[in-house]
Amino acid sequence: MESPYNLLTDNELLALLNKGDENAFSVIYERYWPLLLRHAKRMLSDDEDVRDVLQEVFSKLWNQAFDLEINTTLASYLYALTRNRILNVIAHQKVRTNHIDSLSSFMENEQVATDYLVRERQLSLLIEKEIALLPEKMRVIFDLSRNKHLSYKEIAQKLSISENTVKKQINNALKILRLKLGLVAFITFLLLK
């Protein structure tokens, strides 16, 4: 039996989504996932990247449901969001490729230590940039953990939140950074801390 939500327009679904209605989100997801999947597959060759992009798009839609103000159609908004995420993936792939090529060249030519320091600084800047792009609450918690070396308990007390929230936010930050930085840069980041 078809859900009555399936008969609603995008605008009606958005109004319900703004109230946190999970059924409205589910219908939007089912309505647009296949379309966005085809769109993303035309621009990205890696199926895992495609799935990650769509997961980010729908996560953002749900996480911003209460504050979401769309000045266009839902379809246009989702396509634009997907396109922007895809462009981010492509840009990060290019950065990773350039970095890997640069590392290969460095290893082949056995350049002096100053080259290593320059590359390390570039990687640090890339890592700092990605950390700065984390959601504010997540970034604050991550900074207190990684840079101020506070324990989960100390962070929880300082921010008046639960230790579980702290742990979840740090784990989410690490997942995001691993996704954005790629495996080599992420392992380097962990080793530098």
Rank of each mutant, 00 (worst) to 15 (best):
K148Y: 09
A91V: 07
L54S: 02
L117A: 07
T188N: 15
L174R: 15
Y32V: 04
R51N: 13
R38N: 13
L61D: 02
T82V: 09
K60R: 15
L81D: 11
R31G: 06
R139G: 06
N63Y: 08
D10A: 00
L159H: 05
E130C: 03
L103E: 06
A132Q: 13
N18T: 03
R85V: 04
N88W: 00
P34E: 00
Y116P: 02
A185I: 14
L35H: 11
V166L: 00
S160N: 12
Q157G: 12
R96W: 11
F58I: 03
I131K: 10
A185P: 07
V53D: 02
L179W: 14
A65E: 04
S3C: 03
S124Q: 15
I127V: 15
R121W: 04
L87F: 06
R178G: 12
S102R: 12
T72G: 08
Q64N: 15
E56N: 08
R178C: 06
K175Y: 12
L87Y: 07
G182I: 10
W62I: 02
E56G: 02
A15Q: 15
E136D: 14
L37R: 06
A173P: 13
E22C: 06
I161Y: 04
T73S: 14
K180S: 12
T165D: 03
I28E: 09
D52F: 05
I70L: 05
V27C: 03
F58V: 01
A80R: 12
T165S: 09
F142M: 02
A75S: 15
V166K: 00
S160G: 07
L150R: 14
E48P: 01
S160I: 11
L117M: 06
L125Y: 05
R119D: 10
W62R: 04
E128P: 01
N11F: 07
K129Y: 11
L103Y: 07
H39F: 15
I100N: 09
I28D: 06
K129N: 11
S162G: 10
D47R: 00
T9H: 04
D101W: 01
G20A: 04
I86S: 05
R38H: 12
L17K: 06
L144F: 15
N109E: 11
K129M: 08
L78I: 04
